[in-house]
Amino acid sequence: MGTYKLILNGKTLKGETTTEAVDAATAEKVFKQYANDNGVDGEWTYDDATKTFTVTE
């Protein structure tokens, strides 16, 4: 398990959240659902060194 971070750079929603997941693929699924639930759809990037996903609208 590891802690993964999501940085939201949406047009109307900005912020950060974290999740505990077994791997990056699992964290990505959780974060994409979170972003979708909050109406954020954009370009995704992932930094393996910091376990950080970023979505920018």
Rank of each mutant, 00 (worst) to 15 (best):
M1Y: 13
M1A: 10
M1N: 11
M1G: 11
M1E: 12
M1Q: 09
G2Y: 14
G2P: 12
G2I: 15
G2T: 15
T3I: 14
T3V: 14
T3K: 12
T3F: 09
T3M: 12
Y4H: 03
Y4C: 01
Y4V: 01
Y4K: 01
Y4G: 01
K5D: 02
K5I: 12
K5R: 15
K5M: 07
K5G: 03
L6G: 01
L6K: 00
I7H: 05
I7A: 03
I7D: 03
I7G: 01
I7V: 13
I7S: 04
I7P: 00
I7R: 05
L8Y: 09
L8C: 06
N9W: 11
N9Y: 15
N9L: 14
N9P: 03
N9A: 08
N9R: 11
G10S: 09
G10R: 04
G10C: 13
G10N: 04
G10H: 06
K11V: 12
K11F: 10
K11L: 12
T12P: 04
T12M: 12
T12G: 10
T12D: 11
L13N: 09
L13Q: 08
L13Y: 14
L13I: 14
L13D: 05
L13E: 07
K14Y: 11
K14P: 06
G15P: 04
G15N: 11
G15M: 15
E16D: 06
E16A: 09
T17V: 15
T17D: 03
T17K: 10
T17W: 15
T17M: 15
T18D: 05
T18S: 11
T19I: 15
T19E: 04
T19R: 05
E20M: 13
E20W: 13
E20L: 14
E20P: 06
A21V: 04
A21K: 03
A21T: 05
V22Q: 12
D23Y: 03
D23C: 05
A24D: 05
A24S: 08
A24Y: 13
A24W: 12
A25H: 10
A25R: 10
A25Q: 12
A25K: 11
T26W: 08
T26Q: 13
T26E: 14
T26N: 09
T26C: 06
A27Y: 00
A27M: 01
E28W: 11
E28N: 05
E28T: 04
E28R: 09
K29D: 06
K29L: 14
K29W: 09
K29M: 12
V30G: 04
V30Y: 15
F31P: 00
F31D: 00
F31A: 01
F31V: 02
K32Q: 08
K32H: 10
K32S: 04
K32W: 09
Q33A: 13
Q33G: 07
Q33S: 07
Q33H: 06
Q33W: 05
A35F: 03
A35P: 00
A35I: 05
N36T: 14
N36C: 11
N36Y: 15
N36L: 15
N36W: 15
N36S: 14
D37T: 08
D37W: 07
D37P: 02
D37V: 10
D37K: 09
D37G: 05
N38S: 08
N38M: 15
N38D: 03
G39M: 07
G39R: 06
G39C: 07
G39W: 05
G39H: 08
G39T: 04
G39D: 07
V40G: 02
V40Y: 07
V40K: 02
V40M: 08
D41I: 15
D41G: 09
D41A: 13
D41T: 14
G42E: 01
G42Y: 04
G42C: 02
G42P: 01
G42L: 03
E43F: 13
E43G: 05
E43K: 12
W44N: 00
W44K: 00
W44E: 00
W44Q: 01
W44V: 02
T45V: 08
T45D: 09
Y46N: 00
Y46K: 01
D47N: 10
D47G: 02
D48T: 11
D48N: 10
D48Q: 12
A49G: 07
T50Y: 05
T50P: 02
K51D: 03
K51P: 00
K51G: 06
K51H: 12
T52D: 01
T52R: 03
T52N: 02
T52G: 02
F53C: 00
F53R: 00
F53A: 00
F53G: 00
T54R: 06
T54L: 06
T54G: 03
T54A: 05
T54D: 03
T54S: 07
T54I: 10
T54C: 06
V55N: 02
V55I: 09
V55Q: 01
V55M: 05
T56W: 09
T56R: 06
T56L: 07
T56E: 07
E57L: 07
E57T: 07
E57I: 09
